[in-house]
Amino acid sequence: MKLLAVLAMAFYLLAAFACVHNMLNPQSNRRYYSLLAALCAMLLHGLWLFDSVVLVPGQNLSMLNVASLVSLIICVLMTLLVTRFNIWLLMPLVYGFAGILLAADVLLPSYYSMYLETRPEVLLHIGLGLMSYSLLAIASLLAILLGFLNHRLKNHKLSNLPAMPPLMTIERYLFRLIFVGVVLLTLSISSGLFFLQEMFSPGKAHKAIITIVAWCVYVGLLWGHHRLGWRGRKVIWTSVAGSLLLTLAYFGSRFVREVLLR
Rank of each mutant, 00 (worst) to 15 (best):
S140E: 06
G229I: 01
N150Y: 08
Y32W: 15
Y115H: 11
N22H: 14
Y133K: 01
L145F: 01
R119Y: 01
G58A: 06
L145V: 00
N155F: 04
L141R: 03
Q59F: 14
V54G: 09
G129A: 14
E258I: 02
G99K: 12
A16L: 02
Y112R: 13
R257F: 09
E117V: 02
L124I: 07
I236H: 06
V94W: 02
F85W: 11
L123R: 13
V66H: 04
S71K: 10
M114L: 13
L187E: 05
Y33A: 05
S191F: 09
W230Y: 03
S243K: 03
F50W: 14
L61E: 12
C40A: 15
L261E: 15
L177E: 06
G192P: 06
T211W: 10
S113C: 06
T118S: 07
G242I: 10
N65R: 11
L108H: 11
L61V: 14
M199N: 03
L246K: 10
L261T: 01
L142Q: 06
A208Y: 11
L244R: 05
L145P: 00
A10C: 07
V182C: 12
Y95T: 00
M78W: 01
F175N: 04
A16V: 00
V219N: 03
G252H: 08
L260D: 13
T83K: 02
R257I: 12
S113A: 14
V94K: 02
S159W: 00
M9G: 05
D51R: 14
C75Y: 06
P165R: 08
M131S: 08
G229N: 02
Y111W: 10
F200D: 13
I144W: 03
S201R: 07
V122D: 04
H225W: 14
Y218S: 09
L245T: 12
M42A: 08
L116I: 10
L245Y: 13
W88L: 05
P92H: 03
L130Y: 06
M164K: 01
T169G: 03
L49V: 05
N160C: 02
W215I: 11
R152A: 10
I73H: 01
Y133C: 00
H151Y: 10
G220E: 06
C216R: 04
L128Q: 05
L24R: 15
N150W: 03
S113D: 11
Q197N: 13
I100Q: 01
L35F: 10
V56R: 15
P57I: 11
V70Q: 08
A15N: 05
P26S: 09
I144H: 00
L196I: 14
L81S: 07
Y112H: 15
P162L: 11
R31A: 02
I236M: 12
L123N: 12
Y95P: 00
V54Y: 12
I138E: 05
L246D: 08
K157N: 07
L35T: 02
L49Q: 06
M9A: 12
V219H: 04
R257H: 13
A137M: 10
L135W: 04
M78Y: 02
G192T: 08
M1A: 10
S243D: 11
E198T: 13
L187K: 08
L44D: 08
G46K: 04
G99L: 11
M9L: 07
R176F: 13
G232L: 10
C40W: 13
L221P: 01
Y111G: 00
L146G: 04
F148V: 00
A15E: 04
L3D: 09
L187W: 07
P120R: 03
A103C: 09
A214Q: 13
